[in-house]
Design a protein around this nucleic acid. Structure first.
Length: 195
DNA sequence: TTGGCGATTTTC
DNA sequence: AAAATCGCCAAA
């Protein structure tokens, strides 16, 4: 297992989003190491992306999105669920990748890890992790020792219908054919090549 | 100070 | 189909 370094996150957001698929999210809580393989993500492209929280500007809530890459942007949604994002690209870009689903690998037996809210609940992530460094020792992402060959599929992002033209852009990426995806597309599941 | 509103999940 | 539930933010 090889921990991802800051350089990994300091790249184009879509590239990071695709690259995150198949990687391992690891969180040590009370000495227990929970591990899940990332199977579904969404890219949020900064202030011009009307679906991104950073389109509301640099506020106390979105502050970390405008900081350096490789940090956790965690927020509370609908008053009850937490969502985890990874900050990407250069400082000030306001970009990030939402982690939406995992395949349980370790200490997640019988836990539902599909959906951004369930993912956080399963991994023990809440607002106390806001701004946490993902290049740290207790909370990080790593490449698997023997990564599987995967095919990446794309679709519009979930729950952003209000975002006008941005709502339909194919910025949701997931492992084609994986059972561990929060929602399967209604009709066509279109595979796209990774770049 | 107030009111509307979610990058969701669960339940009816 | 609709509730649950609360921090954030713009407007007053």
């Amino acid at each position: 297992m090889h921990k991802l370094t800051r350089d990994f996150y300091n790249r184009n957001t879509e590239t990071v989003a695709r690259s995150l698929l198949g990687k391992l999210l690891i969180h040590c809580v009370d000495g227990i190491e929970r591990i899940g393989k990332i199977t579904e993500v969404e890219a949020y492209l900064g202030p011009t992306d009307l679906a991104a929280h950073s389109s509301k500007g640099n506020t106390p809530r979105t502050r970390v999105m405008f900081g350096p890459p490789g940090y956790a942007y965690v927020y509370l949604i609908y008053g009850m669920h937490h969502c985890l994002n990874v900050v990407t690209d250069t400082i000030g870009s306001g970009t990030g990748v939402l982690l939406r689903a995992l395949k349980p690998i370790a200490n997640l037996d019988g836990v539902n890890t599909r959906g951004p809210g369930r993912l956080c609940k399963a991994m023990g992530i809440d607002r106390s992790m806001y701004g946490h460094d993902l290049c740290s020792d207790d909370f990080y992402i790593a490449a698997a020792d023997a990564p599987e060959d995967i095919t990446i599929a794309a679709s519009p992002r979930i729950g952003v219908d209000y975002a006008g033209a941005w709502a339909t852009k194919p910025l949701r990426f997931y492992i084609y054919g994986s059972h561990y995806v929060s929602r399967l597309p209604a009709r066509k599941q279109h595979a796209v090549p990774d770049h």
